[in-house]
Amino acid sequence: MFAFNKKTKGLIGIACIDNGVTLGQCSWSKGVYTHPKLIRLDRNPRELTSDDWRSAIHDAGLSGSDCVVTLPPSMIHHQVLRLPEMSDSEIKEAASWEMSERFGIDRNKLQSEAIRIGSGGDVLALAIELDELECILEPIYAAGLRPTKVEAQCVSISRTFSMLHRRQSDQGKVRSLFNFGVHDSSFIILDGDSMVFYKQLHHKQAELLSAIESHTGVSEAQATSMLEEARFDGGEPAICKAVRDATRSIHEDITTDIMKCLRHYGVTNRGPLSSCMYITGKGGWNQFLGELLSTACNQEVSVDMQAPHISRLGHETLAVSGWHAVLGASLATMSGKPARRGEDHQLKEAA
C-alpha cells in the first residue's frame, strides 16, 4: 500500500498513453504533490531509442535511475475473471492459464499478474507478451534507467485518485472514476485505496471529434478546438450548442454503460455504493456528459482537478496528456498501510 513518511520522493514514472509517452516525477508531502516535473513525447514508445529516453530525462530535469513503467490496455491484456476462493499464488496461477487460453498465447510467452477486486470473487487478470515487454524495456535499460516495476495503467490512475484515502478509517469511502482517453476508456470504483471494480469500455475521445466533424463539417483541428470550448459552462453559446447536438448520442451511450457498471457493482459487492464520481483522461470532462451522469447516477460528478490534492497542481501539469498515470507511477513504491488511525496523523488535515 503506502508509506506514511513526512515526505516521500517518487521515482521516475513512465506512462505509455494516448499514442505517446509521458515521463514525470513528483514528491508527496503533507497530503499534496510537490515538485511535479513532466515531459510529453508524442511518439510511438516502441520506436524510442536509448538516446531518446536519455534526452527526455535530461530535458525534464528528472533525477535517479529507478523508474516505474505503466502500460495501457493496448499493450497489456485485461480480463475480469470470477474465480473460487483460493490463495494469492493459486489465483495468479489460474489467471495465467486462463489468459493464455483466452488469447491463444503460449503461457511461457506471457508475463501475468492477478489483482483481487471487490468482495464478490472477481479478479482482474493482466498479461503482456514477453516480446512486447522486451521491446519497451530494452532501450529504457540501455538508457541507464532501472525499471523496478511494470504495472497496468488502471493501477497507476487508481493510486493517483486514492492519495487522500489511504487510512484504515478511509475504508468504506467509495468513489468512482471514468477514465476517458483518446483511444480507450475504463470505469473504476475505489473503496479507500483499493480498486473494487474495473471495466474496460469502448468509448474514446476520437469518436467525439469525429461526430463534431461530421455534424458541423469542420476539420479535426477545429473540432478539437470546439470540444475544448464546450468543456465548461460559459463557452460561446453557438459552439456549445453545436457540440452538444453532435455528441449527445455518444454521451448517452457512455451514461448507459456507466449505469450498468454501477448496477453490477451494487449487485455483486457488499458494502457502500459510490458517493461521487470523477472524470479524467485526455477525453476528460465535458459539461454535457457531467450533467447526464449526475442525473442518471444520482451522485456528484466532478472534473478530476476538483479533487482536493489534485486542485493544487498547476495548469501546466494538468495540461500534459497522461499526467494522472505518470504521477501515480512515480509514487508506486510508497508502501505499508498503518494499523491504527492515530499513526496517520500527517494525512488527517489533508483528507
Rank of each mutant, 00 (worst) to 15 (best):
F4R: 08
N5F: 05
T8K: 02
G10H: 09
I17M: 07
G20A: 07
G20I: 04
T22V: 15
G24R: 05
Q25C: 10
S27I: 04
W28H: 01
V32A: 13
P36T: 11
I39H: 05
R43A: 12
R43K: 14
R43M: 09
P45M: 01
E47L: 05
E47V: 03
E47S: 13
T49F: 01
R54N: 14
R54A: 15
S55W: 01
A60P: 06
S63H: 06
S63Q: 15
V68A: 02
V68S: 07
L71E: 10
P72R: 02
H77N: 14
L81Y: 10
L81Q: 06
L81F: 13
L81P: 03
R82N: 14
L83F: 12
K92S: 14
E93W: 01
M99L: 15
N108K: 13
L110G: 04
A114Q: 06
I115G: 01
R116Y: 03
V123M: 00
L124R: 06
A125Q: 05
A127N: 11
I128S: 09
L133H: 03
L137S: 09
I140M: 02
I140Y: 06
R146Q: 14
E151K: 08
C154K: 06
I157H: 04
T160V: 00
R167D: 05
Q171C: 05
G172K: 11
G172T: 07
V174A: 04
R175W: 07
L177S: 02
N179F: 00
V182E: 15
D184S: 13
S185M: 06
V196N: 00
Y198M: 03
Q200F: 08
Q205N: 11
E207M: 05
L209G: 10
H215V: 05
V218G: 07
T224G: 13
S225W: 08
M226I: 03
L227E: 12
R231V: 07
G234L: 03
G235C: 04
A238G: 07
K241D: 15
V243L: 10
I250M: 04
I250R: 11
H251W: 10
M259S: 15
H264V: 11
G266H: 08
G271T: 12
P272F: 09
S275C: 11
C276S: 12
M277P: 03
M277W: 04
M277K: 00
T280E: 03
Q287K: 14
S294C: 12
S294K: 13
V301T: 13
S302E: 12
A307L: 01
P308T: 09
L318N: 00
L327Q: 10
G328V: 09
S330E: 07
T333L: 02
S335W: 04
K337I: 07
E343H: 12
D344F: 05
H345C: 06
A350K: 07
